[in-house]
Simulated assay, not measured.
Amino acid sequence: MVSNPKRISFIGGFIHPAFDQTIAACGDLALTRIDRERPLSALCENLAATHAIQVDSARSDIPDHLLVGRELLAACPNVVVVSASGAGFDAIDLAACTAAGVIAVNQTGGNREAVGEHTLGMMLSLAKRIAETDRAMRIARIDDRVAYMGDDLYGKTVGIVGFGNTGSRVAELCSGLFAMPVLAYDPYLDAETIAARGGRKVDLPELLQSSDFVSLHCPLTPETRGMIGAREYALMKQGAFFVTAARGGIHDETSLYDALRSGHLAGAGVDVWETEPPEPGHPLLSLPNVIASPHTAGVTHSARRRLAIMAAEQLIAILRGGDPQRMLNPEALPAFRERFRKVLGHA
């Protein structure tokens, strides 16, 4: 063990033991887990010696005083990199990182299979009314099975908002298994890129008006917060389904309840919530045509192990002088390189 190892502080809960194991195998790195119950003032000594912060992806898993923003970064003069444990990064203030010359990274793509499969599972359960009939049969005998008639996915149109790693995986599953035409809304991708990933680029209103299923796979940012509300639900087809495994806050929950209660939408699959976890009395949980999960789409054994190894290997590479692989604020790269040189003594 070297006398002055580069130090990584972990803020959050459990990823997977593979993260700790991968870091421990490096003799020049040391890992400390931050006690989320302690105030920031009690953590300053440890944070001042930290070179990298690993933080949970979900905002709900981090107390306010440990969100990676201006105040926390001020207590971390030697931090050069902040890493989100998954694809989401709403626990990180990217503008604050950029201003400090700190590079921010995530593990995009690490849970694309898990979230893609979960999304497809929700779509199938909604169309076939599997969860609805399961709950009904536990309450009373069903004599009229035709009253619970569902439909097929085959040939239906799916509209995907956000066509990155997970959105494009959902497109592969839907088109490959069920011959579903794929519409995609992603303002950061051109039509050729979207076509290469199996979709047709459209604007958001066209996607909403033309899709039998609308599925969200974009990050929560100032641009996307509140992007799907009463106007957008009204644009959707009568009898369409809404599915989200993106982030709470992108879709308006009250308006979704109204669209479902009125019968305009046939059902919804909701994995992410404005407040997580939602209370059992949440209005959406009272509707039989809503399938709910507590932000677990990406929480599988395989995905957690993959994300843990990706996160550890990326931090190791960065702290040893390599360029970040999955940058969230590439505009900070020049300042990051200068900060790295000053803090760690080499380029």
Rank of each mutant, 00 (worst) to 15 (best):
G155D: 01
V79W: 03
V290I: 08
S168C: 03
P181Y: 09
P334D: 04
H217M: 06
H51W: 04
T193K: 15
V81S: 02
N78I: 03
P181F: 11
T224H: 03
Y148G: 14
A179I: 04
D252C: 07
L189Y: 06
Y148H: 15
G109P: 05
I160G: 11
F213T: 06
M123E: 11
R337N: 15
A195K: 15
A48Q: 09
A75T: 05
R305A: 05
D212C: 03
L284A: 09
E232F: 01
R33E: 07
L67Q: 10
E253P: 03
V158R: 08
V214K: 13
G263L: 07
L43N: 05
A75N: 09
V79N: 02
T166G: 01
D152C: 08
D28L: 09
G345F: 07
P288T: 15
V290K: 04
F242Y: 13
R326F: 15
E192W: 02
V170D: 00
A292C: 07
G116H: 09
G263H: 13
G69R: 13
L204V: 03
P278D: 08
R59W: 04
L126G: 03
L207P: 12
V202P: 00
A308W: 01
G167L: 09
E232S: 00
P39T: 05
M327Y: 13
Y188I: 08
R112L: 07
L260S: 05
P330F: 07
M180E: 01
R169A: 08
A52R: 05
T108E: 03
K128R: 15
I11M: 10
R70I: 02
A140N: 10
T119I: 10
S85N: 03
L29G: 00
V82W: 02
P324S: 11
A140Y: 09
M149L: 15
A259G: 09
G13N: 06
K156I: 04
R112M: 07
R129L: 13
A58Y: 06
A259N: 07
R305W: 04
H301R: 04
Q314W: 01
D56M: 05
A18F: 05
M180T: 15
T108A: 15
I142D: 08
D90K: 12
L153H: 14
L207S: 12
D56R: 01
R337A: 12
L208C: 02
D144V: 14
Q54L: 13
E253Y: 12
N4R: 10
A95H: 06
I139Q: 13
G155F: 00
V2M: 11
M123I: 12
R135P: 05
V105F: 10
D151P: 00
H282I: 01
E253N: 02
L204P: 02
A266V: 09
V80M: 03
E132F: 10
I160S: 12
V102D: 01
G298M: 01
R339D: 02
N4D: 14
G298T: 00
A58D: 05
Q209T: 05
N106T: 10
L284N: 08
A297K: 12
A147M: 15
D203S: 13
A49K: 13
A114Y: 02
R33T: 03
D203W: 01
